[in-house]
């Protein structure tokens, strides 16, 4: 370090213009690099997040004893309000979920009861799938939750990708770090690895069927695999999605659960 400092101070004295140019260039490079990582994540958010959205989806849960198919319709506003109604299979038809802030209400038509769950239970498996209640019903911006660095560029699934390393900057996140492969052209994550604070891989996701919807690229199918869970993962597919639609405010009320 002493030698380096000595060299730099020598350079500053002998060739001040070159030295200053070098310093500015180094600083600029770092700035640009940092900006580009944030930019990439912002562009990912622009593609994935929206003020509100209405979508119909299917879940194919591939277990050890065969697969199970679930169909639902979801209305979401920001990441704090969400309403899902299950349409299939018959046993789950009519089950509704309402998520407001950190609370989730589930209505069961068979018992005509509404129960509330919150806290860590929101991170439990949804209907035996590899998704948690949070993942199904939340649409929080990544830039709000994580600070990001670019690790490298890599090709996966035949597409050039930035490999981003995300580290939580807020407390209330399910996964402390993430590694995300983002398509360099479309800014859609093609693969994600989700880790605990101790660095243990908890879940991975792969995106398929990337489609242009309006101005944004959106993955219509995501395969989730909870590594702590048996089975071959859950295929979550959006069959129809509309962004920035008008949603009747009463949808996000407890009264709508029993309707």
């Amino acid at each position: 370090m002493k030698l380096k400092n000595h060299g730099l101070s020598n350079l500053l004295i002998k060739r001040p213009i070159i030295a200053i140019t070098l310093i500015v260039l180094i600083l600029q490079c770092g700035f640009i690099f940092g900006q580009s990582a944030d930019d990439i994540l912002s562009k990912v958010d622009l593609n994935l997040s929206s003020n509100n959205r209405v979508f119909e989806s299917t879940m194919n849960i591939i277990g050890r004893r065969g697969s199970r198919f679930i169909k639902s319709k979801t209305y979401a506003e920001g990441y704090k309000k969400s309403f899902t109604e299950y349409l299939y299979p018959p046993g789950d038809k009519g089950t509704k979920m309402l998520k407001l802030e950190d609370h989730l209400w589930i209505y069961s038509p068979s018992t005509d009861r509404t129960i509330q769950i919150s806290g860590h239970l929101l991170r439990q498996s949804l209907m035996g799938s590899d998704l948690s209640y949070e993942e199904m019903m939340e649409d929080r911006k990544l830039t709000e939750m994580y600070k990001v660095n670019i690790e490298k560029k890599e090709e996966i699934f035949g597409r050039r990708c930035y490999v981003l390393y995300l580290e939580a900057k807020v407390e209330d996140v399910a996964y402390f770090t993430q590694r995300m492969w983002v398509d360099v052209e479309r800014f859609v994550p093609l693969k994600q690895e989700l880790y605990s604070k101790s660095g243990k891989l908890l879940k991975w996701m792969k995106s398929e069927k990337i489609q242009k919807t309006g101005e944004r690229w959106f993955p219509m199918k995501v395969i989730y695999k909870d590594v702590m869970k048996e089975g071959d993962g859950t295929e979550f597919e959006i069959t129809d999605i509309k962004f920035n639609q008008y949603i009747t405010p009463s949808i996000f009320s407890k009264a709508s659960l029993k309707k």
Binding site: T95, I106, S108, G128
Partner: peptide
């Protein structure tokens, strides 16, 4: 439930 769905019983 056996399949992994939610089960509600009074």
């Amino acid at each position: 439930t056996f399949e992994g769905s939610m089960s509600f019983t009074n």
